[in-house]
Amino acid sequence: MSVDPRLLCAFVAVAEELHFTRAAVRLYVAQQALSRDIRRLERELGTELFLRTTRQVTLTADGTRLLPYARRVLAAQDALLAAFGRGEAGRPLFVDVNSPGLFSTRILARARELAPDSELMARFESGLTGAAAEILAGRIDASFGRFAGLDPALRSRLEQQPVRYEPMAVILPEDHRLAGLDEVPLDALAGETVYAGAGNPRTPEWTDLARLLFEGRGIEVAPPAPLALGPEEFERIMAKTRCPVLAVVDFPAMPHAVLRPLVDPVPLSPVSLVWRKGVTHPGIDALRCAATELATEEGWLLRPAEGWIPARDALIMMNRS
């Protein structure tokens, strides 16, 4: 008998979350598919691993016994993939830059100059939580985003290098009451409902950052809504909802909208370069070197005195994760 590591990954996620919906979001799979994998693992092992009621999920005695074995198998698989990666220095490296035009594209361009013999290919994911799942699945190799916003179980399997304190901004309809300002004081958004990706399973780290920022300021996070893809859909949805959108200062221009930096205080989006733990590839080395060079040249890691950042993010950005 052999056990598919994917089934063990599903088991560990449910065992750590004790909640099928949260585990499914963490693994970026449908809850039905996750339940099928757990049932299949139980059939293959010939035992029940979880006790399920309408209110809670708990481990059985056999589930508790399996957990340390499953973790060791997955750790060994990570080590195997890392070792295999060392023999694949010539393979393409897939780098998620999130969106065209962001500062991460400049890091990628500099890394290509530093490693001309490596093929570094851009990918465009949406959100670090989604990208982290793709990294662990081996479909991409590196990404950028708010490392502190990831589930601790994901962070334990990833490496990170702080890259930038990116000032945050707000996108407004061009006729919004605040659109005429060069900068928008944060308190001026009191009474507004601001879109920050709520409900998007790929970007919960961004929504969490927004909630921390808005707390106690009279600003509401907009409820979940379908993701608008492309400038035309963005324009249509903004015209319909009139909701400001939380963004960063490098966000690409959108039609019939203005982007204004936030101030008083200046909220900062903490960005790290993230890759799978144990991977060795000249492209990763080039990305890390490029990020360090640009951050030093342009002061990306100089935190402004008036800057705002959550305490746990501050610790991680000082490499105390």
Rank of each mutant, 00 (worst) to 15 (best):
E44N: 01
T105Q: 00
A222H: 13
R72Q: 15
H19P: 04
Q161P: 11
L102A: 13
R303P: 00
E16K: 14
A210T: 01
T207R: 10
G127C: 07
L18C: 07
A222S: 13
R43Q: 08
L67V: 11
I171K: 10
Y28I: 01
T21M: 11
V248S: 14
A225N: 01
V3N: 10
Q32M: 04
L27P: 11
D151N: 08
A225L: 09
A70C: 15
P204N: 11
A253R: 14
P201W: 02
L7C: 03
P204S: 14
D141A: 02
D141C: 01
G127Y: 05
E113G: 02
L273F: 06
I316R: 15
S143F: 03
L212W: 13
G63V: 14
T60E: 04
G127E: 12
L259R: 12
P68R: 08
A239K: 15
A15M: 09
G230D: 13
S269G: 12
T129L: 01
L81H: 02
Y195P: 00
K277L: 15
E17R: 07
W300Q: 04
L74T: 06
L7G: 07
E17L: 11
R40V: 00
L172K: 01
A24F: 12
R157E: 03
G199P: 04
T296P: 01
A153F: 11
E233Y: 02
G145T: 00
L273G: 11
A295L: 07
A15H: 13
A311C: 03
P162I: 05
M238S: 13
V25Y: 05
L315D: 09
R6S: 09
Q31C: 09
Q32S: 07
A82E: 11
P173D: 11
V258P: 12
D208H: 12
D117T: 13
E293C: 05
R65H: 15
P231A: 06
M238E: 05
T292I: 08
E48N: 08
E17F: 02
L273Y: 11
E298M: 09
S321H: 05
R320N: 04
F20G: 03
A225T: 12
A196F: 02
T64E: 15
G216Q: 12
A76N: 13
A228Y: 07
H19E: 14
F124P: 09
D175T: 14
S126I: 12
V29C: 05
